[in-house]
Amino acid sequence: MPEPETTGLLAMPPRLPPWLSRAMEPLPLAPLQPALALMLACVGRSYPDLYDRLGEHAEKRFGVDPTDLPLAFVLEPRPGRPVARAVRTLPAGLDTCIRGPLAGLIGMAEGTLDGDALFFSRVLWVEGDVAASLALRNAIDDARIDFGKLLLGGFGPLGARLAEFIRVRMRARPVAGGSSWN
């Protein structure tokens, strides 16, 4: 019989190189804000089912913290009056916060990485209202949004290149073998 082959799955997102994070540190956040607002309005119009899935959680305040970027995002999906803004550090009083490397967050949002697998491997972590985070994850997973382009589009050509860079890097990572319990 032929030898068995391994059918691997990609699961471990890479972290952005520190130099890239440092290079982004001086960039002002102000130009990003209108782009984020536009992005969120666009998402709201294009994916109305997303609010249906979020249900009561659409009124919650979400923090999204890419741990390898020198900025974070505050998201308030509220139907009809959504708010998204970039911040240097997340403010207190958010309902829930999702932390992880940018590639992991984008991969999960785009449906190329599994959120539970990222959680099991401790790549991604949730604080606060876990139900709200779960609802957001499921709603976005179903919506099939090109989140990388939307999220980083505010940085113009640099953002688009960054999104593509992350996407290529994510595809390139083979999975590490796990242990067998019995």
């Binding site: 068995p4 799955l9 539970d116 019995n182």
Partner: peptide, 26 residues
């Protein structure tokens, strides 16, 4: 008629570990 390829799904597993459960009751 080939042998089953190794699934390579460890990263998807809870606790990053897998078991054949009760199918093989060691």
């Amino acid at each position: 008629g080939h042998r089953a390829p190794i699934s390579g799904l460890a990263a998807m597993a809870e606790g990053q570990a897998s078991t054949v459960g009760a199918y093989r009751k060691g």
